[in-house]
Design a protein around this nucleic acid. Structure first.
Lengths: 343, 343
DNA sequence: GAAATTTTTTCAAACGTTTGCATTCAATAT
DNA sequence: ATATTGAATGCAAACGTTTGAAAAAATTTC
């Protein structure tokens, strides 16, 4: 039947026995086009549902108006908040976001980046996968840099790389969280740490350690256990903590998920929160305000990070040749709720 | 300095004093190319970081290998699960996903679709925005249909539209949830409903109503209140429910978020769950297993929906001309946990 | 050594659009 | 009547790649 091939400018030109140039100009309201011609062509175009082929334009102008977002996962609150922030700024400017999920795999990350470059994506927002980080690979990034495609790190980053980045001040957030626990009077503060090596994990860990040091509190290795950012991964470590001969009287979780897992285990054991054990998370995810008791946490402005990252991208894009990478570090903010408010 | 314009086939051709065709064939391991030529060209290409311009290929082959995903939001567990499912199937096949967030706005939805069509996206996965649904607009969809771009509905849909769709059996899930509450012995079951009009809301509501009817239980209008799918929106309605002269002894929330909001309010009031009040949610989000008490809920296989939707898309793409839309309805499954297990 | 064959390379068109420049045609000025 | 203007349109190239067919070069055959 009708083969449903999209209508092109040439089709319209044939119909009006004129040249493609005329049609193009008519559709773009070029002044040097007869008023009637313009009207007729525009009407007809609308009628047949003409929609211009942006692919050809991309080729012509070397502008694709598409951006890549490469993240390890999209099932966490923070990641989606960042993406929403990117969207907020960039969608209205006509940019399209290509989301690539790497599932913490180096290979997928490498392939995603290569694909994005092949597609002539105009900028890339990257939060490196854990595997990439562990292995310390970065040749796949050299490629991006060489192409001078703006590369913006969000969340997880390589510290010694000459690019812009927008991150949250994890260190001081963690520091504040632990200091808050200390100020309340908790003495044995455990830390459910994130995976080793990742900046996020290490910065929060460092905040935890340095705060304890500052207050001359002993650092007990047995109160520091690893998790994997999700609820499940907090269950066993928390059980181990609470079965210690000298168990902690407070736990600082690397994020809200982990803290909620810990909360669950503590309650199962019959502990009262915050009387018997204090809890603090990190992220200020929506749910944290509605757990029982509500969770003290550190606000991590994901949307803002997304918006700032957009800004960094735009700066780099419009910047003159001698571009200097910018680093934005947004402050995190302690949000005190019930889970730590022992009186 | 070096203008960093990406290396093209023509550049390489110039370098070897041969034609672009030869370079193209060499790079693609075409048999009719001299072994030496091939090797030299491939080596050089690697050296200078040649990466073929997929945009030009898209234009030539009328294939973009990119798909659109248009959703109201990405900050819910379910949506991200669906997207992950789409990714799982389609990323390995070389497809790129363009995520468009409509923020429940008709205008944004319309613009997103138009943009996707202009970009010659090869398929669109759509969960319509609330505004679109309320207004009953659908001309923007006609456009997609007319172009014969495969359109797959996920989650929220128009029922009288001739397209494929992958959805979850909300009705029976809700029915099972309420029947479970009844079987436990709850008598006054409230429902925190989703926004009116959306299929998801209405199907779950219908399941609730029909189950009550089946068991000859009275339907009390005052036990049915609206929410907006998120935690906050459940707070006030729940308070109102619990302040009734004859308050409910169980609440069926339209999703986990809402149920968790209700849980929080109930606990604040000093009610014991499930003894004083039973609670059931919907979605089986990761957190629901770790609330205290853990939340009885209905599993909604988001990942699977994404994967099924991918399948539907591929079917339609490879299908012969006489394409018949398919409807996949995945079963939902009651997950019984503590919040409803009054003994 | 020429013809036939095989291998290798080039040509040209195509995808859809825009745009500087040239061209056409009609109207106005001289 | 002719030159001059101005408006409207057409031409052709460009973006980067692939591909069937033609051409050229190398090799084999007699």
């Amino acid at each position: 039947m009708n083969s449903s091939r999209p209508v092109t400018i040439k089709d319209i030109a044939r119909r009006f026995r004129c040249s493609p140039s005329t049609v193009s100009r008519a559709l773009n309201d070029h002044p040097a086009i007869n008023e009637d011609t313009r009207k007729n062509i525009q009407e007809y175009a609308k009628e047949v549902g003409y929609q211009r082929n942006e692919v050809s334009l991309s080729l012509l102008n070397k502008k694709t108006a598409s951006l890549g977002v490469v993240v390890p996962t999209i099932s966490n609150y923070y990641e989606t908040a960042v993406i929403e922030g990117l969207h907020t700024v960039l969608q209205p400017m006509g940019y399209t976001l290509n989301i690539c999920v790497t599932n913490e795999s180096y290979l997928l990350e490498k392939e995603s980046l290569s694909k994005l470059l092949s597609n002539r994506t105009e900028g890339i927002f990257l939060s490196v996968s854990q595997e990439t980080y562990d292995a310390g690979y970065y040749e796949h990034l050299e490629n991006v840099i060489q192409r001078k495609t703006p590369l913006i790190f969000i969340d997880r980053e390589y510290e010694d790389f000459e690019t812009s980045r927008a991150t949250v001040d994890d260190y001081h957030g963690a520091f504040a969280a632990v200091e808050h626990l200390i100020s309340i009077g908790y003495k044995q503060i455990a830390h459910l740490k994130g995976p080793n090596g990742l900046t996020v994990s290490e910065q929060r860990f460092k905040g935890y350690i340095n705060c304890l040091k500052k207050h001359n509190m002993p650092i007990r290795e047995d109160l520091i256990l690893n998790t994997n950012f999700n609820v499940e991964s907090a269950i066993l470590p928390t059980k181990r903590l609470l079965e210690l001969a000298s168990p902690p009287d407070a736990i600082f979780g690397v994020n809200d998920q982990v803290a909620i897992g810990a909360m669950r285990v503590a309650k199962d054991k019959g502990l009262r929160i915050p009387q018997d054990i204090g809890l603090v998370g990190f992220d200020n995810s929506p749910i944290s305000a509605y757990t029982f008791p509500s969770l003290t946490t550190v606000h991590r402005p994901g949307r803002k990070i997304g918006m700032e990252a957009s800004r960094l991208f735009l700066n780099q894009l419009n910047g003159s040749g001698d571009f200097a990478p910018e680093s934005i570090v947004l402050p995190s903010e302690l949000v005190i709720r019930e889970s730590s408010l022992r009186i």
